[in-house]
């Protein structure tokens, strides 16, 4: 099936392009939105590949991630599974350098986006986070802002020159599958939405700044099953355009949404393989014990 987007966009070559909206969302946006098919809004683009090399992360003296090397393929969904406290969230927070925001936390090793070392000298974490967006466990819309302002918040940071703010917000909301539910109340407070809607609002806020990678840290753990299902569908659509890493404690969820799955235990990466393989014939016995529910 040919997706009904007009022009496939390529990854922007430099920042100027991105700052002024290199992957212009409007071209794939409003006209197609009206016929109701949510997925059509999301025009494919190339996400970035991510490579972790011997990544170590610490909280003070606690060694939370131990020498992990792992590759995330572009435009794929990779699930990170493992018992709580295994370091999967910490690992993901290293990919957009959020880990270091926790007092006393530090990370060592290499994380590359395509071929840029994001822990290299002179790399501004702020720029990293523009390219690597993040959706958190608990929906966290800005409590003082309206729905519109929440989505626009990130765009406004980098300047709205050359951006049709309204159109971009509408596009992002449509991508997140929320537009039809909030189109009449964009001025209402974001925190007035239901939990699932709030989480989709946060996804809209994240994609409104046009990242190339989206990290999701247990995005459905605070949501009911119906809302969870909607987010999972959304993830399938979003991978057309973004590289996605999702942390989940829910193995069914990993099985439903992920192309590949990585199993972590005690800060170490045990196994990373196509999802089907992880759940049917894992190479490591510990993986097998975990996915079959022997410990948890």
């Amino acid at each position: 099936m040919t997706p009904p987007y007009t022009r496939p966009t390529t990854s922007p070559k430099d920042m100027t392009e991105l700052e002024t909206g290199g992957r212009d969302p409007e071209r794939a946006s409003v006209a197609e939105r009206t016929d109701g098919a949510q997925a059509r809004v999301i025009a494919p683009a190339k996400g970035r590949t991510i490579a972790l090399r011997d990544l170590n992360a610490y909280y003070g003296d606690t060694h939370a991630v131990r020498g992990v090397s792992l590759d995330y393929a572009a435009n794929q969904v990779t699930a990170m599974i493992g018992p709580s406290g295994c370091g999967k969230s910490t690992l993901v927070r290293c990919i957009n350098r959020m880990h270091e925001e926790v007092p006393g936390a530090r990370a060592e090793g290499q994380v590359t986006l395509d071929d840029i070392d994001i822990y290299g000298d002179g790399v501004d974490p702020t720029s990293v986070r523009r390219v690597v967006g993040m959706v958190f466990q608990k929906p966290n819309p800005f409590p003082t802002m309206s729905i519109f302002d929440n989505v626009a918040a990130g765009i406004r940071l980098s300047g709205t020159r050359g951006v049709d703010l309204r159109e971009r917000v509408e596009w992002a909301l449509a991508c997140a599958g929320l537009w039809d539910e909030v189109r009449d109340r964009l001025g209402a407070p974001g925190v007035g939405l239901s939990g699932g809607q709030q989480q989709r609002l946060c996804i809209a806020r994240t994609i409104a700044v046009e990242p190339e990678v989206i990290l999701m840290d247990e995005p459905c753990s605070a949501l009911d099953p119906i809302a969870t299902l909607r987010i999972e569908d959304l993830i399938q659509d979003l991978k057309e355009r973004y590289t996605i890493v999702i942390v989940t404690h829910n193995m069914q969820q990993a099985a439903r949404v992920a192309d590949t799955t990585a199993f972590m235990l005690n800060g170490e990466l045990i196994e990373h393989a196509p999802t089907e393989k992880i759940f049917s014939q894992p190479a490591d016995t510990r993986t097998e014990e975990y996915v079959t529910g022997k410990f948890g």
Binding site: M98, E101, S127, R130, F136, N140, F142, G154
Partner: peptide, 11 residues
């Protein structure tokens, strides 16, 4: 969470 949301947007 609100502060992290802002930072994760590249603030």
């Amino acid at each position: 969470e609100n502060k992290e949301a802002a930072l994760a947007l590249g603030a």
